[in-house]
Amino acid sequence: MRKYLIRRILIIIPVLFGVSIVIFALIHLAPGDPYSSMIDPNFTAEDRRNLLEAIGYYDPLPVKYVKWLGRAIQGDLGYSITYKEPVLSVILRNFKNTVVLSLTALALSVLMAVPIGVISATRKNTIFDYVVTVFSFIGISVPIFFLAMLLIKFLSFDLGLFPISGMQTIGSGYSGFMKFLDFVHHLMLPVIALALVQMAQLMRYTRSSMLEVIMQDYIRTARAKGLKERLVIYKHALRNALIPVVTVICISIGYLMSGAVLTETVFVWPGMGTLVYQSILNRDYPVVVSCALVMAFFILIANLIADILYAFIDPRIKYE
């Protein structure tokens, strides 16, 4: 087991390496450069050459990569071409916002989905179960940006319950507690959108996992022994059913951290998603590569934790 763990952790490094090479190559293959959209006729070709030379644009690709790698290993992720600011600070700023959004959405969806999924499993084929099933199917079938725009139209615009976009009410001069409440107010709609979709998936997964456990022999045995139904469900079945669910949650965290481009764009939430999208359009190479690495890193760690948890729980799985 330990050998497996160490191997998995060590492998993260070459995988990140691989990711960096692929992304680096891809983004530099994209035609255009950071200054190709500048149409000011006063901006001459000579000016453009100067600017591009300053960012090392004319170096051959392997040279560019090696230069970048050399600095990256030392912790210097470079300078954002768009923001003229260290890449690390740009990413940290946006990452913070994504974390708040994702974790809140995740917490909300877990809090709602798991109990509902469990209850649904125990009340299989009742109306409750049916409604939950249909709801969760709809949740995984609806395009999230469509849902987001519907929410904005009905809840924000028509009913005026929530602000339309952004992270705070600008120019309000709030501070302290009021500022926090204002922020929460702005957080709600994006969280609802994300949580609804997540919840759908989680509910189904919990339900099926729970169902699987309930069918097991040892549950039947417990019942046969005469144990109270409640005890059977909550003490035995639930614990075992939840483990696969936990691993799914872990994996979701990994993906959530990579930022939900569509949701963030519709709600103007300055997170990793919007950063990545803008940086690619602007050909801000250092930012794109660093973002990819950060996201890949989180996905890897999350998957690793999920696998570990799963291995702990299911002794049948042998890792060679």
């Binding site: 990711v19 891809l26 035609p31 993906y255 990545v276 690619i280 794109v288």
Partner: peptide, 15 residues
Amino acid sequence: MCFPFFLIAIVIAGI
């Protein structure tokens, strides 16, 4: 599997 989907999609669409 650890490529963030939209990032790659946008880059490739750019290329």
